[in-house]
Amino acid sequence: MNTVDDKLLAKLEKLSSLKIEDENKEKIKNDISQMLEFVNNLNEVDVSNVQATFSTISGGTPFREDIAVSSKEISDAILKNAPKSEDNYFVVPKIIE
């Protein structure tokens, strides 16, 4: 199992564009380790006799008419929550170097 160390936490901070305060780093590392341990435990579950399912909706997914709607009010309502936007688009930091 991979250890969640300061190097990995710094990488996750950069990828998520989040700043984790120093006093919270140990708790975050512990929480992430517990999550990884839980997910790793799922690998031990025997599902060989379980039939794969693709949908939990009986009868499949209901279809509806797909109608595009362009509304300045909707765009403004969505973009007001963005940290940065320009010309009705989200502006995001470059993460691939």
Rank of each mutant, 00 (worst) to 15 (best):
E97R: 09
S33A: 11
M1F: 07
K14N: 14
K29V: 02
D46G: 04
V45S: 01
V92M: 10
E86Y: 09
N2E: 15
L8F: 11
S33Y: 01
F38Y: 15
N30G: 07
R64G: 05
T61S: 09
E86S: 12
M35V: 12
L12A: 11
M35E: 11
V69D: 07
Q51L: 10
A77P: 00
D5C: 06
K84C: 07
D87C: 02
V47G: 01
G60F: 03
E86K: 14
F38Q: 10
S71N: 14
N43M: 03
N43C: 03
S71M: 07
D22R: 10
F63Y: 08
S58A: 13
V47F: 06
N88M: 09
N2H: 08
N40A: 08
K25W: 03
L8W: 08
D31C: 07
D76C: 03
F54E: 12
P83F: 07
N81Y: 14
K14W: 09
L8R: 14
L79E: 02
N2F: 06
L12S: 03
I67S: 08
N30C: 01
D46Y: 06
S85Q: 10
T53S: 14
A77G: 04
E21L: 13
T61G: 05
V47C: 03
K84V: 11
V69T: 13
L9Q: 04
E65Q: 12
S16N: 14
D87G: 02
D46R: 05
N40C: 00
L42T: 07
I57Y: 10
F90P: 00
R64I: 09
V91A: 09
K84H: 12
P93D: 11
S48L: 04
F54S: 11
N30H: 09
K84A: 13
T3I: 15
Y89W: 07
K29A: 01
S48I: 04
F90N: 02
F54G: 13
T3G: 03
K27V: 08
V91S: 08
V45D: 04
A52N: 08
N41L: 06
E21F: 07
K72E: 15
K19E: 11
T61N: 12
V50P: 01
K29D: 00
E26C: 01
L15I: 11
S48T: 15
S55V: 12
Q51Y: 03
D87N: 15
E21R: 10
D6M: 03
K11P: 00
L12Q: 02
K94C: 03
D87Y: 02
S70A: 11
L12V: 12
S16C: 12
I57L: 15
Q34I: 08
T53R: 15
D87F: 03
D31F: 08
N2W: 05
I95C: 00
F90I: 11
